[in-house]
Design a protein around this nucleic acid. Sequence first.
DNA 1: TACTACGTTGTTAGCGCTAACATTGGGGTG
DNA 2: CACCCCAATGTTAGCGCTAACAACGTAGTA
Lengths: 329, 329
Amino acid sequence: MEDVAKLAGVSHQTVSRVLNGNPNVSARTLEKVQGAIVELGYRRNTAARSLVTRRSNTIGVLASEMSQYGPSNTLLALQQAAREAGYFVSIAGLDDVTPETIEEAMLRFMDQGVDGIIVQVPHSGIFETLVSLNLGLPVVAIGATGENRLSGVAIDQTAGARQAVEYLISLGHQHIGHVAGPAGWVDTQARIEGWRTALAQAGLPEGPLFEGDWSAGSGFRAGQEIMRDAHVSAIFAGNDQMALGLLRAFGEAGINVPGDVSVVGFDDWLESEFFLPPLTTVRQNFQELGQRCVHILLAELDGGARGGADVEVVPELVVRGTTASPSLN
Amino acid sequence: MEDVAKLAGVSHQTVSRVLNGNPNVSARTLEKVQGAIVELGYRRNTAARSLVTRRSNTIGVLASEMSQYGPSNTLLALQQAAREAGYFVSIAGLDDVTPETIEEAMLRFMDQGVDGIIVQVPHSGIFETLVSLNLGLPVVAIGATGENRLSGVAIDQTAGARQAVEYLISLGHQHIGHVAGPAGWVDTQARIEGWRTALAQAGLPEGPLFEGDWSAGSGFRAGQEIMRDAHVSAIFAGNDQMALGLLRAFGEAGINVPGDVSVVGFDDWLESEFFLPPLTTVRQNFQELGQRCVHILLAELDGGARGGADVEVVPELVVRGTTASPSLN
DNA sequence: TACTACGTTGTTAGCGCTAACATTGGGGTG
DNA sequence: CACCCCAATGTTAGCGCTAACAACGTAGTA
């Protein structure tokens, strides 16, 4: 920086002013300084800068299940949004989710000096852990809403599930089952709730509920159980992979989809459009989710306010080929 | 830090020594200082530290296709390995891969002051870009081997593909097709090469080659083409998703797998075990890949040596239900 | 006893930057 | 013409840490 100042014939402080966009710099010096910066290929030292400003321009992202479809897409979006805002992204992936591992990761973030943290851990009950840690840093939790000591951004999965089930009802289905995700996930809970609500509002009896683990294999097994035990004309699957398993189970047994049974998934992952038949599903806008997260976090960073900001992103039903009116027999 | 020193009754420098594991500290003071650190909940300031040491303890990971199976798993492993070594991980995801976007991301990493960079961009031709940027930083590129100005770690996909095809040959197949990934990916190229080599070594004619785009949809279309035009008893698919598409195409047409056609995939993704029948595929050890990457990078950081270190991780054939000897008719 | 050597601790300077204050000079006002 | 004001720039201090050196005391040696 001293070199740049010398070359431009000004003081290092003036260079700093140029770099920080300070308005009190004459057009002439501005030009000279910028010229010198380019000529020397000068780049500001982040460590020194953050030592004095107490800002690292880094946000920490705490994630689990990083290789799953939803989380990895959210992570991608998060990272894009952060970069656009001029922030670096530091990630910590959790192998297993316990209060201890969460705390450890958070302390690491504190050590690193991140400005704020985004938590992308879809397990129930982590929010208390987050609140109890009480780091003096803005935290935005994905999936957390209604927690007033924490800001949250969520895809309104209950609404998404409700949309899906309401659509099935509108087609004339009266016996609608649900293959849920594993217990302990916020997503699982929300989707079950949406399914229940839609049925209750339509005055329909609650259909059978199966528990899967998000994998196609568990969907397949649920499909076999359904064929053996249950009497349904439509099934709402907790995600597209399990829907794929269902499709496979039914296909193998000669049950026609959507002729005999309708199936709806959740996620709209890449392959769903290529299922046979193409899967009717609920699309989540991860892009928007990520952007909202980052924007809320940045607002807290600038404004100083803490917690309580909640945003819900509404998902969208994508009707494709696995849904039809129930057959009359 | 000054506070800790005061509480322990020593100088701040002694505290620093304790923190850095300097041996020249008496047991008594060591204990006192550690006590004071715990009591005050003191944590060292990273910015100040890296200002003087010129080390940020951060490694940058440049990634593209972050939401795909391979990349996201590698990223996960990378991050774990880095954390175990006490490093932070900063990520930059590329939307589109051009020399410009790569350069921009790299400059961002330089600004951030990362100690080293791992590149996880599976496109051909990016290595020249990396070399030409000539940042004075250790760079380890995943998928790059034989580049002597750059260190590389790769899964030996050629060997994996060869294993798969050799296995088909050992079953007695003589007409073996390949559904490749999109052009421009290192992986695509390597897998094609392995397939060709195995056929050539066995003295078999080169079977038909189809180009997909990694998606199940493209595999499905390739399957339809194959049924229409080609005469093969086995197909080696460039990844598991495309293998899934093939399975679907054949299943729909009443062609039995593995009775009429054998299919082998590549990746061993989560769902492959649940395909119908379960997919024979090639498993890549992303865990090891990630660890190797980080270790090579750290070795360069400590040793000062640059480039040239190459490691190949050998994948493993997983035989499941989609392969059998060719039928005799 | 006097000297050296070394283990232990303290002191000083400076990493590269920004905040706060000090200084300069040109234009408007009475 | 003297005054003040403010925009433009320079100067100084200090963020929290580590490296380098200085100082101290104790034990071993002659």
